[in-house]
Write a protein that binds this DNA or RNA. Sequence first.
RNA 1: GCCCGGGUGGUGAAAUGGUAGACACGAGGGACUUAAAAUCCCUUGGUCCGCAAGGGCCGUGUGGGUUCAAGUCCCACCCCGGGCACCA
Length: 1035
Amino acid sequence: MQYEHQRIEEKWQAKWKADKTYRVLNATDRPKYYVLDMFPYPSGAGLHVGHPLGYIASDIVARYKRHSGFNVLHPMGYDSFGLPAEQYAIQTGQHPAQTTKTNIEGGFDKEGRPVAGYRNQLDRMGFSFDWDREVRTSDPAFYKWTQWIFLQLFDSWYDAAQQKARPISELIACFEEKGSAGQDTSVLTGDIEQFVGGFSAAEWRSFDERTRQMVLQHFRLAYLSDAWVNWCPALGTVLANDEVKDGVSERGGHPVERKRMKQWSLRITAYAQRLLDGLDALDWSESIKEAQRNWIGRSEGATVRFPIGEDFIEVFTTRPDTLFGVSFITLAPEHVLVGKFTTPDRRAEVEAYVNSAKNRSERERQAEVDKVSGVFTGSYAKHPFTGAEVPVWVGDYVLAGYGTGAVMAVPGGDQRDWRFAKHFGLPIIAVTEGADTEKEADERKDATICSKGFLQGLKVPQAITRAIQELEKLGAGEGKINFRLRDAAFGRQRYWGEPIPIYYQDGIPYPLPESELPLKLPEVDKFLPTEDGEPPLARAANWSYNGHPLETTTMPGWAGSSWYFLRYMDPHNAERFASPEAIQYWQQVDLYVGGSEHATGHLLYFRFWTKFLFDRFWITFDEPARKLVNQGMIQGVSRFAEEIRIEASLKAKFDSRELVLKVMDTSGVLNQIEIPPHSDATGYHIYCSSGTPLQFEFVDKATGARITTVRSHHHANIRFVTEESVDGRNVHHIDIDSWLKEEPVYHPIVITDVPERAIWDYRMGTWSSLTTERSLTSRPLWVVRPEVEKMSKSKFNVVNPDDIIAKYGADTLRLYEMFLGPLEQSKPWDTNGIEGTFRFLRKFWNLFHANEASAHTGSSSNAPAPSTLRVDSLHVTDDAPTKAELKILHATLKKVTEDIEKMSFNTSVAQFMIAANELGSLKCNKRAVLEPMVIALAPFAPHIAEELWEKLGHATSVTTAPWPKWSAEHLVEDSFSYPISFNGKTRLQLEFPIALDAKSVEEQVLANPEVQARLEGKAPKKVIVVPKRIVNIVV
RNA sequence: GCCCGGGUGGUGAAAUGGUAGACACGAGGGACUUAAAAUCCCUUGGUCCGCAAGGGCCGUGUGGGUUCAAGUCCCACCCCGGGCACCA
């Protein structure tokens, strides 16, 4: 009987659904285990083979834990708010809710193309999700609680003394009693720190409502303020710092500029220290923890105030020990005091500089890091220690958003200050012994201070401590810890997100009462901003509460994902985001699996919200996930080409000569092409891969002399698109005409089967191998080579799991993805190896069935019809297993059990293969061996396991079977074959009983004639015997 | 520049300091078959010697070191991937 994956998988998927096999109940007497996957954004492109990698791994762990007696929560849902659905809505007018529903449940898109649906695709993989617990962040029943948490944040302030969030009412009570005195007010604002003027209790009571609310805004964890934001004009919205990469938006790559505007923000900076400290106890990969540490960016130092007239400039420095080396002060162009300190004679120049700096985008500023620019304000500040006059400059190397937006420049100890000083001819004072300040600044942290003053002769660390003491004594500054982390921009000028439950009365934001939640997204006529630039929600009719206008921005994509893990615990609760009982039972996530690209976005907000909910006593733990595993990316293989044109200027050299063109990269000559003399007026067009820079050498065929060399600097970056399969062959679309013009468009001309390394002969219309010599005409040639990159629809290199499942089945795909290599490692998708895992499943299946091959050959002329064959070909006996068979079984159970605990799935699949091969050659068909094997395989290949389990006569699902325990007694060996090595090099094998002690082994080894022959009569210097390991003879 | 990972056959990859290359793909050879598919068996790191059985040498990015023994530990360097970056 054959292994029919399609029939088996359809049968069991239907049965699991009907029986609710994977439903999880909250209260049981079994211990809990919570396995969570990062939920996907349901895009129209559907799943590709990269997505399930993590899901398969977590599913194996979830199933294994279930077999091991745990009550396992393993849910799945959708992060269903997001930009693509909204962009699609803008283009087609289809409501994002509809697009989202179709993308999840399947159907047809607006253009009538079929959409498989995430749910259907996931179901086909055989995952053990409890779908009764599905969540969608765009579901009002879900986002009601996202809004509710926002209201809690709005209703909270961070008490720096107690290091926790508290209700704002307690702060108000404090103000009424004592005013703003004391530590209570030392809260970061998240931007450049602003000074909240102190006030007494009496003053507070005399404040009007508006003033009180303005003051409270400085303390709320969700607050509205003027803030520098990352404004992306192309997307028409503000972005958080982690959504901007290299000055462009992470999604879409649109330019981003800094802009000051009213903006909802979350005060994540208040949690900076706790987010940092909490990392130590987490079982997360070191690289993610490091990424978070870098992102939080804690630095210890001091603030120093430099008096200037009645005023002062405050700077932050990590090196107060270099204070005596200060030769100027630099302000960021955006610094609020720039205007104030500019003298009249300098005003024109300073304003021009500030304006040009402001108008340059972030990207331009980053690109011009090497360029020094700045301008003198004309003012001088006083050095707090020496009283010296310190000129105040403006320079764009100082960032407005970090520290105080101003630096004390120490050219002798800071390379950036040094370059600025060199460029403008400012004095450079040596601060450390042995520094050559003519050449560069000395940034060593183990140096000795040499600048004049009380720090002279001290080592840097001691000097820092001393300098802070002196500053504090003088009242000119104090020790200070600064963080790079900025508060998170929380408002998005977009439609498809959670509405922020805030209304405005006299321009002051007030929270919507809880009873009004969820505040549902209104209907709008268009998903675009209004004519006067208001967000789409401003288009809604009656977007108000009791006549007061409602907030028009929506929450960012990461709002729902910051707490969704709690909702799975109790997904249908209408009274609370989750009941205390459910939270108490499920606690933290025990294993969280997802991509490392969320290191500084989602994973930081996820921890922040958890800590906040903990502070306000809604949950009983302050970290969301105990263990985190990052699955690697499955990459796609793309094929590129690039263009070189050899135009008129070069053409003259080629005329009337026979040439040889050598195509080379760093590894040498890839190809040689003979070029006949030609008279084409346009010159040559050569199209080449962009994988590595190529070089083209033209050689005179007759003399061998090199005529000219051309580098491939004209990149066209043409992508060969593998978009569809026709008759099992990949069809590559490419638009040559638009390519020749400039911008690539993926379409018209269809080329089939692009080889990995090839030249496209335009004239012949064929591909030929790179090694073939061929003549070049004036027609273009392409050289194509593969390049590995991220798999995504926009790169046209997607492999769809549905196609693989149709051919091999989900069990094969699951095994193959695990077999590919360590989970954390990224690897290109390559279908070539999949036959191996498919063959393994067939072998495994055949262990349970009579050998039909022999039956066939014996009676090939009158073989039974397939239907009768199918009836009962199970061939399993109840005979007692042999020692060898038990050894294979228990070795497999041991390896697989240990490997699942380590999440080393590739090696467990290998062990299954070994077992199947060995049991196959032993012709083992004994129930006592095969039955435990079925259970052990079930987490990896659940469908085939269920089918075999049923055939073995079980009425209940294999998922209910207890995990088979391995026992050491079956693994004991009687003897061991010792590798005998000479000076560490293995030369022969000798077998001795395990029980034989080291001394006897040594004697017998030395008595061995072959060993004697190798010793050539000489006595060994030393003999090392490691029992059950090795014998090493030193000669 | 700084901080994390990682460099092993033609390919994906194994390997508590103890026989490097398990397992799989691919390739080559063979069996069965009219044929194909499927299945099974053998070979497969490089290189040299030998008709053969067999044997020698080299080999885990490079160079040193520790050790009876190093892919694994230590030092220096090179390369690849990721994160951070005029962050004071």
